[in-house]
């Protein structure tokens, strides 16, 4: 009893109520086994990003000065695109796909008739999106390496960093999905992700925003970009713990919200 009380203080209640979230991942694996084309198609978008960097930007912009040091522009921008791809993939998975299962196929109603709980569904679906996203992140790193865009061996740490980014955006995305009324509500997603992409120090250093740079701190993607970029440029700093904390906080709030909402929507 007391150990449970202590555990409750350390681990969010939602995580404790989730006993078997991995079953949702198992279900997705079962689905992708005969829908592997859908899985593969996810590799292409980030690939196109990288190509555009290689062919386009870097021939125009050679070097960029970041924290007083000069870097190759392609090595500077590629990790930011990796972070953005992790965000996009996670949001895509946690919105359209989840909406279908929540409102149309009634998958979650079925699941909740078993010992599974709303927290299992929320955490499980987010874990599924993150698992899928990490496959793409690994592919992204390999492609970067093949294109000669890797600046530091620390780039391997970018994969777990993208897992964190994916977790944050998938849980916020899924929380949003519980409020969606129809497919057209997906428009709001683009209205949010596009500005995030443009105003997260993705394409240029924070200093380029001048007096407005404080606004950039409000972009969750920015905190992801800082970490992933640090990995590729080989500079890890203590302040990155702060960036991680922002993403963790977002993950937690999103997860909590999602579990509550699913409970309220389906267990009527």
């Amino acid at each position: 009893m007391t150990s449970r009380a202590i555990a409750l203080r350390i681990v969010p209640v939602e995580l404790l109520a989730a006993r078997r979230p991995q079953r949702m991942v198992e279900r997705s694996v079962m689905f992708y086994r005969h829908a592997w084309l859908i899985l593969v198609s996810g590799f292409f978008e980030p690939l196109l990003y990288l190509l555009s960097v290689q062919v386009g930007f870097s021939s125009l912009i050679g070097e960029v000065t970041y924290d007083g040091v000069s870097y190759d522009y392609a090595e500077f921008v590629a990790p930011a695109l990796m972070a953005a791809a992790a965000m996009n993939g996670a949001i895509f998975d946690a919105t359209g796909n989840v909406f279908e299962k929540l409102r149309h196929s009634k998958l979650y109603d079925t699941v909740l008739a078993t010992p599974m709980t709303a927290s299992d569904v929320a955490l499980g679906e987010i874990m599924g999106a993150v698992t899928r996203g990490s496959l793409y992140s690994i592919a992204f790193v390999i492609t970067m390496w093949a294109m000669g865009l890797v600046g530091s061996p620390l780039i391997v740490l970018a994969v777990p960093a993208c897992v964190l980014i994916g977790f944050a955006f998938a849980s916020v995305g899924m929380a949003f999905t519980t409020y969606m009324r129809s497919w057209s509500d997906l428009e709001y997603i683009n209205a949010v992700t596009l500005p995030l992409l443009l105003f997260s120090a993705t394409f240029y250093p924070l200093s380029a925003y001048g007096g407005w740079s404080w606004i950039v701190y409000f972009s969750p993607l920015y905190h992801g970009v800082v970490i992933v970029r640090g990995c590729n440029l080989g500079v890890l700093e203590w302040s990155m713990l702060g960036n991680m904390a922002v993403l963790l906080g977002l993950s937690w709030v999103g997860l909590r919200f999602t579990a509550r909402r699913i409970d309220g929507l389906l267990l009527t």
């Binding site: 279900r27 079962m30 689905f31 829908a35 196929s105 009634k106 998958l107 109603d109 079925t110 008739a113």
Partner: peptide, 10 residues
Amino acid sequence: PQSDQLDPEL
């Protein structure tokens, strides 16, 4: 349940 709710993706 009254309506089947099978998993259409499987």
